[in-house]
Design a protein around this nucleic acid. Structure first.
Lengths: 211, 211
DNA sequence: CTACATTTTGACCAATCAGTCAAGTTTTTT
DNA sequence: AAAAAACTTGACTGATTGGTCAAAATGTAG
């Protein structure tokens, strides 16, 4: 067994964590090119050479940050349960994603920025891993529809709509804040948002005779 | 009448146009910081000092590009007609925005990038002009709901859902392409998308007894 | 054709920034 | 306690880049 030296010390673990937290904030605010290593180092409270001791290249920090956020954001998606009630499962997913948008908008923004610029760092991941997960969930949705437990809609576009909408509240926060400044302040904003989205998505906006 | 020298020559008009076209492409691919003036100059087929003769600062180019795209993207929104049929008007709006996503994804991306990074250049515009337009349309939607011609949903969140979804197809094109590579190739992809979104939004995904 | 304004560019400058290096300090191991 | 390993940093470097400048080329009006 030729184990490569992978002895991770306590200090390493702590400092890598500090660096990644700092980097997430800075990358989300300024993007990859717009971020300087000095900025991250300052926010992390250490010298630049020291930071580069842990992550030899700027890109290494960026990729690591991205990988962590990707995992965060995919977790609720993975948790959609084929054996559960379709509407319940989707509602739970929407609520989970909106909660993430509220608690960790930075990671959503880093991800959005990466995709926006053509996914140079995670294109492969999207085409392999992400696609695989999506395919599985698409199959689940198809089954639900076949069983008559969900209206016959296009599964891909349904997923895209949910992704788009939930991302929007993190990524376009500034715009939302500009358009409805009073409501965003409300501490229940995200609960209200979830309720409103679920209502629209479940029932549609076509008026019905039966209220 | 003390008219300030605003004699815009033919050459100026042409070159400004060339520069803005080139800048749109480069900014959309690399963001503000990620774009170099040299890149724009090369794409525009002129020297850097010459480009700076028309736009003295990099930011001037950026702001001008943003203003143009903002106008593009707001036009269909403005065209929502209070006297029209609610569902028709919203369907028309969705189709128009998706067409723009298809024909001019770059401008959508420049805009998204700007918002993502906190709207440093157009924050004011959002808080004044955009907000005003949105307020007006919100009122229209409220009227429609009061008249029973639209289901009683939250107007703000309805607008955000439509914005989010339609933007998504331009901004997250790479992700969509990775997840459903075969379908994106289809030349009818945007028509199908529009149809699917409209179906979901109008009818919801709750299964009904009455097919 | 002449004089003037506009347009174009090569050469340059100062600032910024990713990454290096060598020398020091601290922690861990024996 | 001594030696080795891991950690930290000030000072530096080379490349990039936003922007300047002065001089040349081109266009235009009388």
């Amino acid at each position: 067994m030729t184990q490569t030296k992978t002895k991770t010390t306590r200090i390493q673990e702590i400092n890598r964590g500090i660096i990644l937290d700092a980097a997430l904030e800075v990358f989300s605010a300024y993007g990859f090119r717009g971020t300087t290593i000095d900025q991250i180092a300052e926010k992390a409270g250490m010298s630049k050479p020291n930071l580069l001791y842990y992550f030899p290249r700027k890109e290494d920090i960026y990729v690591t940050v991205l990988e962590k956020t990707l995992d965060d954001w995919l977790t609720p998606f993975r948790h959609i349960d084929p054996t559960g009630d379709p509407l319940d499962e989707l509602a739970k997913y929407i609520i989970a994603k909106l909660k993430l948008s509220e608690s960790r908008p930075e990671s959503s923004r880093v991800f959005a920025n990466e995709i926006l610029h053509g996914a140079p760092a995670i294109g492969d991941f999207l085409q392999t891993h992400l696609r695989q997960i999506v395919d599985r969930k698409i199959a689940v949705i198809r089954t639900w529809i076949d069983e008559g437990r969900l209206a016959p809609v296009d599964p891909h576009h349904l997923i895209f709509m949910i992704w788009a909408t939930t991302q929007h509240y993190a990524d376009f926060k500034v715009q939302i804040g500009a358009v409805v400044p009073d409501r965003v302040e409300d501490e229940n904003f995200y609960e209200e948002t979830a309720a409103a989205i679920i209502t629209i998505l479940f029932n549609g906006i076509r008026p019905r005779q039966d209220y």
